[in-house]
Design a protein around this nucleic acid. Sequence first.
DNA 1: GTCTATACACCGATAGAC
DNA 2: GTCTATCGGTGTATAGAC
Lengths: 217, 217
Amino acid sequence: MSDTKDKLLAATADTLREAGIAGLSARAIATRAGVNQALIFYHFTTVADLVVAATKRTVDESVGYYRAEFAKACSLVELLQIGRGLHEREQELGNVRLMSQLMAGGQQDAILAEAAAYALSTWSEEIETVVRRLLAGSPLELIADPRGLAKAVSASFIGLELYEGIDPVAGRSALDALEQLGMLVEVMDDLGPVARRALRARIKRSKVGLGKSDTVV
Amino acid sequence: MSDTKDKLLAATADTLREAGIAGLSARAIATRAGVNQALIFYHFTTVADLVVAATKRTVDESVGYYRAEFAKACSLVELLQIGRGLHEREQELGNVRLMSQLMAGGQQDAILAEAAAYALSTWSEEIETVVRRLLAGSPLELIADPRGLAKAVSASFIGLELYEGIDPVAGRSALDALEQLGMLVEVMDDLGPVARRALRARIKRSKVGLGKSDTVV
DNA sequence: GTCTATACACCGATAGAC
DNA sequence: GTCTATCGGTGTATAGAC
């Protein structure tokens, strides 16, 4: 990887983090990279292509780092703890912000949408794998769809990040509330056998977790 | 309210919905409104001020509509159903998209951030009121912080909307997963007395719902 | 209140020298 | 591969005629 290309990729991620999608431009990227503006088009043809390459690199690096962490988790509660650390780390690196800006831009721009879809599915698949492994045996298994749940977690992270950028105090309290709710998982994970059986029966009795074609009441 | 001002306010909301924060400009708004571009600055001084006024109007109208709906809810399950309808309606009107674009822009622009903060707190306060009323008596009361929870719900809606704009199928499955999880509320709301007591006791026993200063294990 | 015309900065992208 | 110079277009905002 040439030095210029590398500098441009790094500067693109940084610009997206700090100036947002509305402030992203070839000139802004080139200035930050300390590189001539024309070189963007020589190396990457268009600004959009550069953004795609830069976000892909960022996501692959982050997800790769957390693959090993996820593998260590032996319970849903442990996973929740890893998730907390992940959020803090990614927050600090500015990667959640990068992703939220990419997603906002992707609502109107097809090329950015493709980049955002790649980022989201890469994260979601990684999360799904570990959730599926740890959900086995829990009463939650009857309710939760691991794939959809993983996507929902990713989506919520994005929303929380945006909230925190707008109103840090409120965003923080939203995150705290979700963590408290995550404790529900701990409780259900660790219920005595009697209560666990009762809960499991109650869940089965409701329509929850059944396909739409089933009409058991 | 003069006709021109009204047209500009409506066009601003529409432009934000359809062109996003990166495509928002005085020219784009004026063209959509069928109004001379210079009139934006005559009536609203700056584009940012116009955006603030437009989003405030949109949010006040939407929240006002739902205040009456929320008042009708008599159980958490009913609230969940209203929430589903709300999501569909706001989605169709494009108001969630408007809000997500406003939040994305607000990460870098202080004036947009103020508008986004107003929108978020207006929604959150309305949701908090009804959640607080309906949570009384549920075992969830011991865990959940209504204020934080309301903000978390708002944030998650934003994230889900962005996800759906990027990958409609995946976004839909994320929403479905959250709704299934919402069924957990139904189950806990409607548990037999024995299981309810067991669950309540288990929740109390865990550190959940206690302040940080308490160190009961 | 509404219009035209315009100032000035920045945008993506390209041509062509080196 | 890297540079300067430049094209046509768009951005906010204002001056001044009507």
